[in-house]
């Protein structure tokens, strides 16, 4: 575990910075040659532009817990993808400093035919851990996931809750500087959720920067130190969680929102 001292020292460092960032997706209208070729000859439009994020700027300081809320399809997940470095901005800049552990759509790196043990090693490597680091943390990962009895079972027999427990356990053992959590705590029983929040509180104390995307406004208010509201690809508001959540609830009733 990290010692709190150096992180306190870096408390005012910006770890994430979006500068006038725009992200466009060009969606191919025609997915196959059969559709594409006639369209090309007839001069039809072959691409649809979709603006996922429109001129967004914000900074996140080291140790902040940032909640991101907004309606479905507003661009929240695109922000997380840009931070994770999976996709590149169309315009503007994104700056990220530190080791990122994404907890997005848990189990993305799992293979159903492999056992839980094999998957821990696979997923750890995907998150950038070395074999040795995983070996050192192996017992702790298994213990946290509470899956001791199933560790040599292929995970295709696991329930979604068990998947989530395994994924969460691996991700928190990467000792991240920035932890990205996207809507994952919805599955899993209340006991385990409780345990996850305890772990995240621990991370907060150690100065880990956390980005939390959720529709559960109560937890955002309780857990986050700051909140962003995204709607229709734009950054609408940035401030204290209570204020932003109230604004969100108010505007939600507005049909044009």
């Amino acid at each position: 575990m990290k010692t709190p001292l150096p992180t306190l020292f870096n408390m005012n460092n910006t770890v994430i910075k979006f500068t006038n960032l725009t992200k466009k997706f060009s969606l191919q209208k025609q997915k196959t040659f059969k559709e594409f070729l006639p369209a090309l000859f007839l001069g039809e439009q072959t691409k649809n532009n979709f603006i996922a994020l429109d001129n967004i700027s914000f900074k996140v300081k080291s140790g902040e817990t940032l909640g991101i809320i907004g309606p479905n399809g507003s661009g929240k997940s695109t922000i997380l993808k840009l931070i994770a470095g999976v996709t590149a901005p169309t315009k503007g800049k994104v700056y990220v400093n530190g080791r990122i552990s994404p907890l997005i759509e848990l189990g993305a790196g799992f293979h159903p035919e492999l056992t839980a043990r094999e998957n821990i090693f696979l997923n750890g490597a995907i998150l950038g851990l070395s074999q040795k680091e995983i070996e050192n943390n192996f017992n702790s990962i298994v213990k946290f996931s509470e899956l001791e009895e199933f560790i040599d079972q292929p995970i295709k027999f696991f329930s979604s809750g068990m998947y989530m427990r395994l994924g969460f356990s691996v991700a928190i053992h990467t000792h991240p500087d920035i932890l990205i959590i996207d809507e994952i705590l919805a599955v899993g029983d209340p006991n385990f959720q409780q345990k996850c929040f305890q772990k995240m509180e621990e991370f907060k104390k150690n100065g880990v920067t956390i980005l939390y995307v959720s529709h559960d406004l109560d937890t955002v208010i309780k857990f986050c130190s700051r909140c962003l509201l995204i709607s229709h690809s734009k950054l609408i508001a940035d401030g204290s969680p209570i204020q932003i959540c109230q604004q969100y609830l108010k505007e939600k009733t507005n049909p044009s929102f």
Binding site: H111, E113, E118, F121, L122, A125, G128, L129, S130, Q131
Partner: peptide, 20 residues
Amino acid sequence: KWRELLWQMTSREIKARYKQ
């Protein structure tokens, strides 16, 4: 630099193929 992942991916490829 990512050789650990390369190794894990290769062994996933091999292990998973003839399971069951």
